[in-house]
Amino acid sequence: MTQNLLHINPIAILVHAAIPLVIILVYALVAIWAERKVAGFIQDRLGPMRVGGWHGWAQSIADLLKLIQKEDIIPNDASRFLFKFAPFMMFAASYAAFAVIPFSSSYIGSNINIGVFYLLAVTSVLTLSIIMAGWASNNKWSLLGGMRSAAQMVSYEVPTIATVLTVIVVTGSLNLMTVTEMQSGNDILGFLPNWFIFQNPFLLVAFVIFFISILAESHRVPFDLPESESELVAGYQTEYSGMRWAMFMLAEYADMLLLSLLGATLFFGGWNSPFGDFMSGPFWSFFWFMLKGLLLVFVMMWIRWTLPRYRVDQLMHICWSILIPLSFINLVLVALWEVIF
């Protein structure tokens, strides 16, 4: 990271940094539309149909244009600087974490050897920006949403990190590029790809725990307590409007993609093609990687329209008395498996 940062010229850095940004923006436009379509289809509706012709594909663009034009309302009693700053900090945190995601076999924002650790560290700032937004709004719903979010994210960071650690125990490297490269090939039972999810039964358990935790980390149903619209209006976003609110939305979707891509990297072979050498190469690897990530995002949306929301105490119960012990036991078991085999 430092080598790159100090010796490449600034424009190259900017171009390099723009690639994940473009991916995030395009993804957010598609994902918001897709979320509404998935919601519609699951409820036997059609979802947005009118903007842009085929299945309302331009709906998110229209929404974005609308949001740009909206007034930027700041409540009188809000803490002005923090109120204005929080959405940008939230997006910055989730955007910065994309630096260590290996998007393709030949592209990674920053090939540092603390990869996953950096990602987890940077995303922990998200929590703080949510508390910041919740407190600065000077609104009870916002504050409650912010506090819930903080409690939730701090709690669920533990099982997330513990399950990431199980994979790290297997790979022995924090660098996500190395983690991905270790999953190349199709050797399991002769045809299955060497993905960690197939390598070891305990890693399957780890994936289940990891997936539940990232649902909570990215505030998705059934753990969307910070913005539960039926009780807290919109949680920490209540007072936001226009582009600042759009930044929150973007950050949420970026976070969702980030954690899904992390899951795809850790458990589903990252940019590796499921068919060995067939359809591999820089472009195809990007395709496979995004496909895996977006499938996980789809599962998140699918779960959103299936399950109801948990209560706060149930949320904490699931985390502290089920997921955390289970993930640590699982960590030990994976380590034992690695020692034995």
């Binding site: 289809f41 699951i42 036997d44 059609l46 699918w302």
Partner: peptide, 21 residues
């Protein structure tokens, strides 16, 4: 029960919609 629920929703996902444009 979660998987049963998800099965129900995915069936509706691929099923026809009742919306009248």
């Amino acid at each position: 029960s979660i998987f049963i629920g998800m099965g129900v929703t995915i069936r509706h996902f691929f099923g026809p919609s009742v919306t009248l444009q």
